[in-house]
Amino acid sequence: MPNQPLPPVKPTAEQLQAAKDTTIPDVTGPGLRVLFCGINPGLWSGATGHHFARPGNRFWPALHRSGFTARQFRPDEQGELPALGLGITNVAPRTTAKADELTAEELREGGAALTERVLRLRPRVLAVLGIGAYRTAFGQRRAAIGRQPEGIGDTAVWVLPNPSGLNAHYTLDALAAEFRRLRGTLDG
């Protein structure tokens, strides 16, 4: 029987409060094909130590439906991604209840730190998950979803929709289609 997602263990209110303004480690390794970059970790991620951990977040289903993974991973399986050439980081490291709690300065500082990280790790593609955060972090006010004209060193930059359940502009199918579009460029 295939590995089925387990129901998440819900952090307590105290655990969520204690997670505010903390950080969680990146998931990286050598030879990454894609470094996925969230805006910042949410409180569930801070409480569990796993990226995209909140049950309503659609990162893990979109990753699977787009063909990046053969099955849907759970957030606690994030450590298996580097073996598939995939990694996870964030523009801003600080955990918040909502991304709009971040300041523009935090996003710009995060963009500069992310640039340094990408130059060091040299993934084939950096995929930023959130158009607004990308525009602010990199000063690209007219950026659109998809491949960006400017890369970082030898790394191509893509912007994908934010997989948060709060992003009502994209259904899971539409989100997976954008992930699939990126994946198609890697296979070709």
Rank of each mutant, 00 (worst) to 15 (best):
T136G: 04
G29V: 08
I131D: 02
V157T: 06
V91F: 10
R142F: 09
Q4S: 14
L81S: 04
R54V: 09
E109P: 04
G188V: 13
R74Y: 15
L114M: 07
P75R: 11
A112V: 08
R124H: 13
T22I: 05
S164H: 05
I152W: 00
N90W: 07
P7T: 11
E116S: 14
I39T: 10
R141C: 11
D100W: 03
G188C: 06
P5Y: 08
R141M: 13
P5D: 04
G111D: 01
A156D: 14
R94N: 13
R74I: 14
A83S: 12
P93Q: 15
T48W: 03
A127G: 09
V27G: 06
L175H: 00
E101K: 04
G31F: 06
N162K: 03
P149Q: 12
G87W: 02
A19F: 01
P75Q: 12
R108W: 10
E116R: 14
V159F: 06
P30Q: 08
L102K: 03
A70F: 05
G188I: 12
T89V: 11
A13I: 09
Y134R: 01
K20W: 13
N3A: 15
N90L: 05
L182T: 01
T89M: 09
R58I: 00
G56Y: 08
R135P: 04
L114I: 11
T95F: 02
A143L: 08
D100I: 01
P61V: 03
V159S: 03
R141H: 13
A168R: 09
A62Q: 05
R141L: 13
E77W: 05
P75T: 09
D26M: 10
G153I: 08
A99I: 06
A19L: 03
G132F: 04
A53C: 10
K10V: 14
D76E: 15
T22R: 09
E101I: 02
R183K: 14
G49L: 04
A99G: 03
N167S: 01
D154N: 12
E80P: 13
I145A: 11
L114W: 02
L126G: 05
E178I: 02
Q17M: 12
Q140M: 12
S66T: 05
R183T: 10
G87Y: 02
A18H: 06
G29K: 01
I88L: 14
R142A: 08
L6C: 15
L43P: 00
A143N: 02
D187W: 15
P7K: 13
E101M: 10
P55Y: 11
D187C: 14
Q140C: 13
P161L: 00
P149F: 12
R108D: 11
G153H: 06
A18Q: 07
V118L: 00
L175Q: 00
R124C: 10
F36C: 08
K10E: 12
N40S: 04
L182E: 00
